[in-house]
Simulated scan of single mutants.
Amino acid sequence: MRADESGPEAPDPAEIEDKAVRLLARREHSRKELQRKLRQRQYPESLIADTLELLEQRGYLDNQRFAEAFIRERIGKGHGPLRITADLRERGIKDGMIRALLDAAEVDWQQQAAVVRERRFGTAPPANRTEWGRQGRFLAGRGFSAEQVRRVLGDGRGDD
């Protein structure tokens, strides 16, 4: 397939649309994700843009619907708000939409962090500073804020 639009090998717009719809049938995608996947297949930029516009008009491609599904999935996997936000930004979702959707999810992030910690480390609090640090790094890596980590783990003054 050629990247330019001229010549006998130029892709048919219906081919691009079909490929995009098949990708969307597997799972929701953000506009940026779908654009990247179509670029990887070396479709012409103008046809990609036209296809994405058409899919948005038809309601097949919707960044808000994608972000809602993404947030639900990531909460279920035990991710925190910082990681979810970063992942959505990477996928082209605007900060205002991210904040609104995270607020609408009505998650108690401290409770979420406590559940994630307990699932990984059990119910006993960290026995010492080393263990506190290990659990804190784990929760931070999952996307919980320093304040959420402190509230879940306590002050970290265990024996060392």
Score class of each variant (00 low, 15 high):
L23G: 02
A25D: 15
R26G: 09
R26V: 08
R27H: 06
E28H: 14
E28F: 12
E28L: 07
S30Y: 00
R31N: 08
R31C: 07
K32T: 12
L34F: 00
L34G: 01
Q35Y: 14
R36D: 13
K37R: 15
K37G: 10
Q40R: 14
R41F: 10
R41V: 08
Y43L: 05
P44V: 07
E45W: 07
E45F: 06
S46L: 09
S46C: 04
S46M: 05
S46T: 08
L47Q: 11
A49V: 09
L52M: 00
L52W: 01
L54M: 10
L55N: 02
E56Q: 13
E56S: 09
Q57T: 13
R58T: 05
R58W: 09
G59H: 06
Y60D: 11
D62P: 05
N63H: 05
Q64L: 13
F66Q: 00
F66E: 00
A67V: 06
A67E: 06
E68S: 13
I71W: 03
I75D: 06
G76M: 03
K77Q: 15
K77I: 06
G78Q: 04
G78S: 04
G80W: 01
P81L: 09
L82V: 11
L82D: 14
L82A: 11
R83Y: 13
I84G: 06
I84Y: 01
I84W: 04
T85Q: 14
L88G: 01
L88E: 02
L88F: 05
R89P: 06
R89Q: 15
E90T: 12
G92A: 03
G92D: 07
M97K: 11
M97A: 12
M97E: 14
I98S: 02
I98N: 02
I98G: 13
R99K: 15
L102M: 05
L102V: 07
D103K: 15
D103T: 10
A104V: 03
A105F: 01
V115L: 15
V115F: 12
V116C: 03
V116P: 00
E118V: 07
E118I: 10
E118P: 01
R119S: 12
R119H: 12
R119W: 13
